[in-house]
Simulated assay, not measured.
Amino acid sequence: MITRRTLLGGLAAGAAAASGLTLAGRALGSTATTGRAAASLPLHIVNSSGQYANSSIWIYIVGNDGTQQVHVTPDGRLRPVALADNGSDGFTDYAIPLAAGATTTLQLPQMSGRIYTALGSKLKFKAVADGNGKAALAYPAGWVAGDPNYDVLHDCAEFTYNASGMYCNTTMVDMFSVPLALHLSGAKDQTTGTLRDGARAKVFTDVKGAEGFDRLVIGDKRVIAPGHGLDSGLFAKDYLAPAIDEAWSAYASKDLTVTTNAGKFTGRVNGGKLAFTGPGTVAFDKPSTRDVLFCDGTLAAPNDGTLGPVAAILGAALNRSTLTTHTAQPTTDPAAFYQQRLTNHYAKAMHAATKDGKAYGFAFDDVAGFASYIEDGAPKELTLTLTPF
């Protein structure tokens, strides 16, 4: 199964190298040329926001075709990003306007990337040269006060569409602003990301009311993820330290078991490291709060089938505050999640907001199947809906 973390690597590599941004999810997989999926897929954009007319909404489809950074034109053509695309204001204009009617239909070529929605104003994507001198895009960073898109109401969904099928998700890993839902039809009909009635306002209220999380709420525009808040000085760098210390102390005297597709790993803390034996030998230094929130650093998860899956499960357990309380991981009962005082209250609010209980509140939210992610090996069409605010 392709997950968001394997789905998004190529996008992050190009955009982050170009812009200095850390793109959540570590994006986009292979764009193979054999399989069942057609060369392009109908993409429907439906505006049910109730707040903005179609004339005030723009779509951007940007990403990577496996060899270079690209964008999609309004007529469904795939075009490479070029430095010459920057206009007199220093930014590209890759905006796709919505049709006057209720539904806008585009053709989505095979690629990996993001579908951005901008409400009220256009986004400013800047074409820049990456570390290899290739053209790439600096993506919007709504969590950075000095970003040119900071005042624009925007959000995105992520996808990889290749010959093997469509793999897509809504995401709150970086921030939450615009309620979005995805409907994928093909071998079966699937929908994810749909918020409960009134849930957008409740997310803002719940995060603002959680101790230590209040400064992550940026007016009525967005709620930024605590990892980005930490980097911006809006969230405590040691917020999770007592919970992490508690877990490391607990497993100095008892076993922790972690079960992955490779088998069962058994771990103990020794010399400050949480070391596992089993199908392989892996060990982890004690993570920082930032490592947990970004699922990176000591919890980075390579696609190796051994270290990576164990890291992902540990990261999920620490975000969900189940590591100390459950000696067998992954924990699969959502009733056990986010029950401690020190927990990822941002992710908790996101999951409470969605109708199916699934969200991408942090990068390892796919552990045990709680992410707002869907896939289909024989896709027929994809619909992105801006749902009511």
Rank of each mutant, 00 (worst) to 15 (best):
T3D: 01
T6C: 07
L8S: 07
L8W: 07
L11I: 15
A12H: 09
A12R: 09
A13D: 10
A13W: 02
A15E: 03
A16P: 02
A17D: 09
A17N: 00
S19M: 02
L21N: 15
T22G: 11
L23W: 11
G25K: 13
A27R: 15
G29K: 05
T31S: 14
R36K: 00
A37N: 04
A38V: 08
S40M: 11
S40H: 14
L41Y: 05
L43F: 10
I45G: 13
Q51R: 15
S56A: 12
S56I: 01
I59W: 12
I61P: 07
I61N: 07
V62R: 15
G63E: 05
T67D: 10
Q68H: 08
D75H: 11
L78W: 05
P80S: 13
A82I: 01
A82Y: 06
A82C: 09
A84H: 11
D89C: 08
F91A: 04
Y94R: 06
L98R: 09
A99L: 03
T105E: 13
G113D: 11
R114P: 00
T117F: 03
T117S: 00
L119V: 11
S121Q: 13
K122G: 13
L123S: 10
K124G: 09
V128K: 12
A129R: 10
D130N: 10
G131C: 04
A135G: 15
A136L: 01
G142P: 14
W143F: 15
V144S: 08
Y150T: 01
E158H: 08
N162E: 12
A163N: 02
Y167V: 14
C168R: 10
T171V: 13
S177F: 10
P179G: 07
L182Y: 06
G186P: 04
D189E: 00
Q190R: 03
Q190E: 03
L195G: 15
G198F: 14
R200M: 06
K202Y: 04
F204R: 08
V207Y: 04
G212D: 12
G219C: 12
R222S: 12
A225S: 08
G227Q: 06
D231S: 13
Y239W: 06
P242G: 14
P242E: 14
P242S: 13
D245L: 01
D245C: 08
A247Y: 08
W248N: 06
A250P: 01
Y251K: 07
Y251G: 01
A252M: 05
K254D: 01
T259R: 00
T260K: 00
T266D: 04
K273M: 02
L274H: 09
L274G: 11
F284S: 07
S288N: 09
T289C: 00
P302C: 06
P309K: 00
I313K: 04
I313Y: 01
A316M: 02
A316N: 08
T322Y: 03
T322S: 11
L323F: 00
T324G: 07
D333F: 09
A335G: 09
F337Y: 11
Q340S: 10
Y346N: 03
A347L: 04
K348A: 14
A353C: 04
T354E: 07
T354S: 06
D356A: 06
V367G: 00
P379L: 10
E381D: 15
T383Q: 12
T385G: 06
T385I: 03
P388N: 07
